[in-house]
Design a protein around this nucleic acid. Structure first.
Length: 882
RNA sequence: GGUCGUGUAGCUCAGUGGGAGAGCACCUCGUUGACAUCGAGGGGGUCACAAGUUCAAUCCUUGUCACGACCACCA
């Protein structure tokens, strides 16, 4: 088997297997022994997107799950897709035509522009789907869908029309978040509040027929042109006598009422509030309560309109300066105080959001939200980690109606139609050309498109064919819905998770997913967010090229559990690359012996074989349980330890003698066990590191066995009980370690043979004698002596005690006595400290009275064992010193 | 302002009402025998601080400090 290279080279292996899997349709769901569907809907990345570290984590966690379930015999479907990302995509194409042709979208016109976007999508979009393959993602690509495809569009129309007819979708003049850069309304969820250093402008408002003055503090003085009232708290002793009088708005000299309203906070600002219902959410509410007129000051691009007087055409930021100056000139600017406050910005455009009143489409989510809260409260849908429920609840318990219309071109156009001749307005799933009431052909569709998240909210349903009955059958809706788990980041719990829940429940009467696993956000090794400005981004494709996809995946999985952040350090990937290579080389060691191996595990096993089988069984249990709970960190550390420490460092080392012995029967049996365990190991590891395990499987599988990707996942066997072997093996390893420790302490070369002496109780003496060959081998000894504790200790020697065995290493040369005494004394002090902890407890009557029996038993047995160790060290020290 | 979370080894982070852990980094020794992407060893922590509950607290409770994320109507 000399053709196996000394180091594992991922590149060709990854290409080869991905091709084999994909072409062999191995990612297709196939009914298995679990007789149950298992489905994960992939959060669709933006069509403009490129693979980043967050996606890599997305892929790793979902792919590990789907591979795990596939091997467990579930009919497993991982459903991929792509999001049309309304604003982002429109921006990309607008920039392109501006750069290449010097044109705007208006030069194209709506229809042509949309065609242009589709062209762009075909040509450049969806690079990410190719990149996902390099991570080893195993979704069923045949299920792939784009949010602007015909099927999702049909779902969008159906849902819209139903909600419209039910009166839940309505059009209203309401105060909304206006993004002046996009020239569109956006939803509350899309507004980010950013801390900004601004000013408090204190402005004096005159009062009609009075010498009194009301001092008002505001951060947005330019909005005073839209003031239609001034308000104070009705109980405010300072001002309540003014309620009912008339204030005069500076500059425009509008006469407005002075109101009393509970909303006003006496402590805040000057305790006196200017009311601008057209441009402030709260003022809008106050305005409604008091029937105030609404004045709109702004154009769609954020500049002032006619109501802006001489400042018409300026942006609000520019106008602010000039108006403040004007106020100063008028002597009505009392003072300007620096003020730090939170200002809403568009999460896409980063522009300052201008609240304004506009006619938009809204979805009334009140009842739906209540249902979705209930589903999580009663665990129909469970969050992992559970804490994220709070985030979900906080959004849904006080929901605000969702502004769903956007003044963009790229997206699902709102299926509402207007008749030009009879004013009829209706929602329609089709493309009506005549009015449904008067049959006039003057029909126009609403120009707005829907919020991207509207179609995303239907994603688990629409990708599985809903609402088309035939398609649903074809796509096995009933098998896969409700889907098993949604894997995503916490940043889109409101945007996406909550809305899918609402829509899913509303239209299917079912939750769209049974579990929600919220994974960490990937950050750099210092815990900072990856960003272009910091240039600390980690490109997954680079990592795959440098370390291999498996190493990268294992690193991400090992860092994933219930944590919020995953700090990714490329050095760690290097560490796990070594682990991958270790597995490769473990196989290289085993491979020459495989031809002797039988395919069935023999009934009679020796001690070490029972031990490794017992350990394998234990790790299988951990793997199965932790994967079920999304504790990838536990899975990874368990299998890493098993492979590295137990299997490689001990079992393979112990096997070397056996495999080279003359005893054919033993050799065959050991080869069989090695093969058996290794087969299980690659299966256990496959969900995390699919490529190398599939490659190694070709050498380990029987001829008629299929690929590893659809092999059975190793299960825990409760009937296996090799605990006695495991217990003895622990002691064996401790003793060998003690020998190595002693050798190191006197600088004996690893190859040099020594003769150590072990002193123990009868049971261990028998055991050591049985393990004589292995002890000699791993301790590099000619013929170690195994003696009773009471037997005479060697004279010139170094020693180390464990709780069960005293290890002596007799030496002929010069011993640095001082150093050995120091070493023993240190060990003694440590052991005594530990002992005293237990001893104190045993002498504490209260402990003896109150602690449970098993705790007392453990403490006293620990004390006893440590006592033995202390006695042994003391004796030795006495000898050394004399 | 509200909510949630975090504080454990140099770094990144697990963990448990009863013996402080891992990986990486570091130090020493070694290595043409599966693996230099390796081996054998080693050093290193007042488990943020304080009080309380308990026979027993790193773990539970309360408070303090520090940090972070998210939410919240820009007076």
């Amino acid at each position: 088997m000399s053709e196996i290279s000394k180091t594992y080279s991922p590149e060709e292996v990854e290409k080869k297997w991905y091709k084999t899997w994909e072409e062999g349709k191995y990612f297709k769901p196939r009914p298995g022994k679990a007789k149950e569907g298992y489905c994960i809907i992939m959060p669709p990345p933006n069509v403009t997107g490129r693979l980043h570290a967050g996606h890599a984590l997305d892929i790793t966690t979902q792919d590990a799950l789907i591979r795990f379930k596939r091997m467990k015999g579930f009919e497993a479907l991982w459903l991929p897709g792509m999001d049309h990302a309304g604003i982002a995509t429109q921006n990309v194409v607008e920039r392109m035509i501006s750069k290449e042709e010097g044109k705007t979208r208006h030069d194209y016109g709506r229809e042509k522009f949309i065609e242009k976007i589709w062209q762009w999508k075909e040509e450049y979009g969806g690079v990410i789907a190719k990149q996902q393959r390099s991570m080893g993602a195993s979704p069923d690509w045949d299920y792939s869908m784009f949010t602007m495809d015909k099927e999702p569009n049909q779902a969008v129309r159906k849902v819209f029309v139903d909600l419209f007819n039910e009166g839940l979708i309505y059009q209203s003049d309401y105060i909304i978040n206006w993004d002046p850069v996009l020239g569109s309304a956006i939803s509350d969820a899309e507004v980010e509040h950013v801390e900004v250093n601004g000013n408090f402008y204190h402005i004096n408002y005159k009062i009609k027929d009075s010498d009194e003055i009301l001092e008002i503090a505001t951060t947005r003085p330019e909005t005073l042109l839209g003031d239609t009232a001034v308000s104070v708290h009705p109980e405010d002793e300072r001002f309540k006598h003014l309620i009912g009088k008339v204030a005069i708005v500076p500059i425009c000299n509008r006469e407005v009422p002075i109101l009393g309203d509970d909303y006003v906070d006496i402590e805040k600002g000057t305790g006196c509030l200017k009311v601008t219902p057209g441009h402030d959410f709260n003022d809008f509410e106050i305005g409604k309560r008091h029937n105030l007129p609404i004045i709109n000051l702004l154009n769609g691009d954020g500049t002032l309109n006619d109501k802006g007087l001489e400042w018409k055409g300026l942006t609000s930021k520019e106008a602010r300066k000039k108006i403040v100056k004007k106020l100063d000139e008028l002597g009505q600017l009392k003072e300007v105080k620096p003020h730090v406050h939170q200002v809403g910005h568009g999460d896409r455009s980063k522009a300052v959001i201008e609240p304004l009143v506009s006619k938009q489409w809204f979805l009334n989510v009140q009842d739906m939200a209540a249902e979705s809260v209930k589903a999580v409260e009663d665990d129909t849908t469970k969050f992992y980690p559970k804490g994220w429920e709070n985030t979900y609840f906080s959004w849904l318990r006080e929901p605000r109606n969702w502004c769903i219309s956007r003044q963009l071109w790229w997206g699902h156009q709102i299926p509402v139609f207007y008749c030009g001749s009879c004013d009829h307005k209706w929602a329609d799933e089709g493309e009506p050309t005549t009015c449904s009431k008067c049959s006039s052909s003057e029909v126009k569709q609403d120009p707005d498109v829907l919020d991207t998240w509207f179609s995303s909210a239907l994603w688990p349903m629409s990708t599985l064919g809903w609402p088309n009955k035939e398609l649903m059958k074809e796509k096995k809706f009933d098998t896969f819905f409700p889907t098993s788990v949604l894997v995503t980041g916490f940043d889109i719990i409101f945007f996406w998770v909550a809305r899918m829940m609402m829509m899913g429940q509303k239209f299917t009467k079912m939750v769209p997913f049974k579990k929600v696993y919220i994974h960490a956000i990937v950050r750099d090794k210092l815990g900072r967010k990856m960003s272009k400005s910091l240039d600390n981004g980690i490109d997954p494709l680079d990592m795959v090229a440098e370390y291999g996809a498996d190493a990268f995946r294992f690193t991400l999985a090992a860092g994933s559990g219930y944590n919020r952040g995953l700090n990714l350090d490329p050095e760690r990937i290097g560490g796990y690359r070594n682990f991958i290579n270790k597995i490769w080389n473990a196989y290289r060691f085993i491979s020459p012996h495989l031809e002797n191996a039988k395919s069935e595990l023999p009934k009679e096993l020796d001690h070490h074989e029972r031990w490794i089988i017992g350990e394998l069984n234990a790790v299988s249990k951990v793997m199965n349980e932790s994967m079920e709970e999304f504790r990838y960190d536990d899975s990874c550390s368990a299998i890493y330890q098993f492979v590295y420490d137990k299997f490689c460092s001990w079992f393979i080392e112990l096997s070397k003698t056996t495999l080279e012995s003359e005893n054919e029967e033993e050799k065959i049996r050991r080869a069989t066990v090695l093969k058996y365990v290794f087969r299980k190991v690659v299966a256990l590891l496959h969900p995390m590191i699919p490529f190398i395990t599939e490659e190694l499987w070709t050498f380990l599988k029987e001829e008629d066995e299929p690929l590893l990707i659809i092999q059975d996942y190793p299960e825990f066997d409760p009937n296996i009980d090799f605990s006695k072997d495991q217990e003895m093996m622990e002691k064996f390893m401790e003793t060998v370690t003690a020998v190595r420790n002693l050798r190191a302490s006197v600088n004996i070369k690893p190859k040099e043979l020594v003769n150590f002496e072990l002193f123990a109780d009868q049971e261990l003496i028998d055991y050591y004698k049985e393990q004589f060959a292995c002890l000699s081998d791993l301790g590099k000894a000619e013929s170690p002596k195994i003696l009773k504790r009471s037997d005479a200790k060697p004279g010139k020697s170094v020693m180390k005690a464990t709780t069960h065995t005293e290890v002596f290493l007799p030496l002929e040369g010069v011993i640095d006595l001082e150093e050995q005494i120091k070493r023993l004394e240190k060990d003694l002090a440590k052991t005594e400290k530990e002992f005293s902890k237990y001893d104190k407890k045993l002498n504490n009557q209260k402990f003896m009275d109150n602690a449970p029996e098993e705790v007392r038993a453990e403490v006293s047995s620990n004390a006893e064992e440590l006592g033995k160790k202390i006695t042994a060290i003391n004796e030795s020290l006495k000898n050394f010193k004399s």
